[in-house]
Amino acid sequence: MTDYYEVLGVDRSASDDQIKKAYRKMSRKYHPDIAGPEYEDKFKEVNNAYEVLSDPDKKRMYDSGVDPNDPNASAGYSSAGFGDMGDIFGQFFSNAFGGGGQGPTPRTQPGRDSLASAAIDLKTAVFGGTAHLTINTFGLCPECGGSGAAGKEKPVTCPDCQGRGMRQKVVRSMLGQMMTTVPCDRCEGHGTIIEHPCPKCQGHGRIRTTRKVGVSVPAGINDNTRLRLAHQGEVGEGGGAAGDLYVDIRLKSDKHFTREGDDLHCWIQIPMSWAVLGHQIDIETFDGTQKLDVPEGCQPEQTVSLKGLGVTRIKRPQERGDLVAHFSVRIPTKLSGDERRLIEQFGASHDEGKAQIRQSSRPASERKGFFSKLKDALG
């Protein structure tokens, strides 16, 4: 018997929340759309484990040593005294007095949700756009349209169970021999039989297919955001309604900008003369080329902000963050004779006789002035 707890990687004492959390982790890890088609069996095993452990009755049945996914074991369990006595007597008297069973299982089943990921560039995150991805999942069979039957044939009533989907079976119990109800072997509990299954889908009404999907990305989206596309997941058995498609958005790194919240940051290296005298430069932004003023006497790591050229605020789409330019000053390492004489003249007139050396425990950019200290003191 399969150890469903081991499949999900949890202890037998795990709570419902722990089981659910483990299932989400394992289903994402082994989903064929992410891990690859070769993990489809493992993905089904994870889903089977969760189906049992998330259902109180099936979990109680499994913990007593019977696998609910085994029809024969289920029948033995329900009539052998391992479960609730009310279930035994309820089943006995419902069969004895003609009570109805659970009825045939519909051939059409809803499809499961699918999970995929898409990588977008920073500009798409700033303005929004469309992410294109390819997914491999179950789609409607084009030959039979989901019916599972060749041509336009209709399923016929099962001659063994007369359409009930269940059959009676004699089992032994602590009360003696009893009549119980199990799914019909011939129709697998559906109550009908497809005499000529569709050759393309083998009667399932769906086939594995690859298709392209366009995902609308809202402006200002954050990294690792999950988007939901209703009814874009896998089609169910028998052409059942498709589940949802969940897409995890990943942001690619950008060679010009770094994002911090709704602001964009860039680092610009300027020559020493521009830092001293000031200068106007052109920089590239997501809004095109913009002019930026280097302030006179610009210090290393000094910043200048361009308002409204950052990331769109996702909760206030009419607003955007800022673009923050950080300056680094390029100090020349090799000077010509004339250049050296000019620098020496500058030093003689500007630096001689002045206290140019200051020693501190913190960088100059972290030291605060009087008003900043007063503001901190007042809270």
Rank of each mutant, 00 (worst) to 15 (best):
T2R: 11
D11N: 15
S15P: 12
Q18P: 01
R24M: 14
K25T: 10
Y30E: 02
Y39A: 06
K44R: 10
E45P: 05
A49D: 07
K59E: 02
Y62A: 02
Y62M: 04
P71Y: 09
Y77D: 05
S78L: 15
S79Q: 01
S79M: 00
A80I: 02
G83T: 05
D87K: 04
F93L: 14
N95E: 02
G103P: 15
P104C: 04
A116S: 13
S117L: 12
A131D: 13
H132T: 15
F138H: 10
F138P: 01
L140K: 08
S147M: 02
A149P: 08
A150Y: 11
R164Y: 03
G165F: 04
K169C: 03
L175N: 14
L175T: 02
D185N: 10
H190P: 13
E195N: 05
H196E: 03
P197V: 02
Q202F: 07
H204T: 11
T209C: 03
T209K: 01
K212V: 03
I221K: 06
N224Q: 12
R228T: 15
L229Q: 08
Q232Y: 12
V235P: 03
G238I: 10
G239S: 05
D244T: 02
Y246P: 11
D248R: 15
I249V: 14
F257Y: 06
T258Y: 00
L264F: 13
C266G: 08
I268D: 04
M272V: 13
F286C: 09
G297K: 00
C298M: 15
T303M: 07
G308C: 04
V311Y: 05
T333G: 09
T333E: 15
L335I: 08
E339T: 05
R340I: 10
E344S: 10
D351W: 01
D351Y: 14
D351F: 12
K354Y: 06
I357W: 02
R358V: 04
S361C: 08
S365C: 04
F371R: 13
D376P: 07
